[in-house]
Every structure is written in C-alpha cells, then in structure tokens.
C-alpha cells in the first residue's frame, strides 16, 4: 500500500472511531431525557372570576397546582409559588402584605416583585385566559417573566 493511501485510510478509520464514540456518548446523554413525562397536566380551570375576592391572594390552588391567584380591580394574574431563588415555597403573610420565603428569607410583594433577600428576580406569572364557558383557565406551560418585560403580554394578565 502506498504511504499516502495508508494515511488516508488511517484518518478515515480514526474519524469513524471518533464519530462512533461521540454518537455513543450522545446516546447516553439523550437517554437521561425521556420523551414522555408523567407529571400532572399543565393547564386547569379555577372557577369564575367572581369566585375570587378582590385584592386577596387566593391560596386554594397552592397545594394542588402550585399557583396563587390574585384578583385586583383591573383583573387577575396567576403567580407561581416557586421561589426564584432556589425553589422553596414562600408563605403569604397577610399581615405584612408580602410573600416570605422560609428558606433564605426572600420577600415578594403581592405583585410578585422581589424586594428583599437573595431572590434575584420576581416570581413568575403563568398564562391566564377565559375559557369558553367563562371560567378562568390557567396554563402553566407558558410563563411570563417580569425582568424580560413579559408581564405586559396580553395573556399574562386577565382583564375583567
């Protein structure tokens, strides 16, 4: 075999080897991410707007769906109950009018804006719309982040 040709074959061989190894490791990594997730559905109805008291933080869906619903004079929004610091569940303190996270002390106003403690950004809001039957529908697969200016999008706030 010519020297040239040998080198060509050698590099083809090595490339094939590298490709196969790379493919194998990609497969291993991909294996960690299943196609189907068995987690509860992401969107659900919470009742009619009139079921919610004005200017109150509604905690009925905290346990089951991890959202707070707040109704103001203008409309409603759905706040995620996941602290943006490290994911603990803050408590709503009516007397102090704030959400307080027990883990490292972050505080959030009723709007979800952070104002104390280590949390780097406000709580997230979820998509909130009216379903055809007039009930309020919360969809957790779409979230809106304040620091990206997303709270202004129409579906982040349900005008009533």
């Amino acid at each position: 075999m010519k020297r040239r040709k040998f080198i060509t074959w050698l590099s083809v061989g090595w490339l094939a080897f590298a490709g196969a190894t790379g493919g194998f490791f990609t497969m291993i990594i991909r294996f960690l991410f299943p196609n189907v997730l068995f987690e509860p559905p992401q969107s659900f109805k919470v009742g009619f707007p009139s079921d919610f008291q004005l200017n109150q933080v509604d905690e009925r869906f905290k346990q089951s769906q991890a959202v707070w619903l707040v109704r103001t004079a203008e409309g409603m929004y759905a706040l995620s109950t996941v602290c943006t610091h490290l994911g603990c569940t803050p408590n709503w303190l009516i007397t102090d009018n704030k959400f307080k996270c027990p883990c490292h002390g972050s505080g959030f106003r009723k709007s979800g804006i952070n104002f104390e403690g280590p949390a780097p950004r406000p709580l997230e809001r979820y998509r909130i719309v009216l379903a055809e039957d007039g009930q309020v529908l919360v969809d957790k697969s779409v979230k809106f982040q304040y620091e990206k200016g997303q709270w202004d999008s129409p579906e982040a706030f349900l005008t009533t």
Binding site: I29, L32, F33, P34, L37, E39, G87
Partner: peptide, 8 residues
C-alpha cells in the same frame, strides 16, 4: 432535569 428526571 437530567439529575431529577422531571421538572420537580
């Protein structure tokens, strides 16, 4: 996600 095999 790779660690938890889920979102939470």
């Amino acid at each position: 996600f790779a660690l938890l095999g889920g979102r939470f």
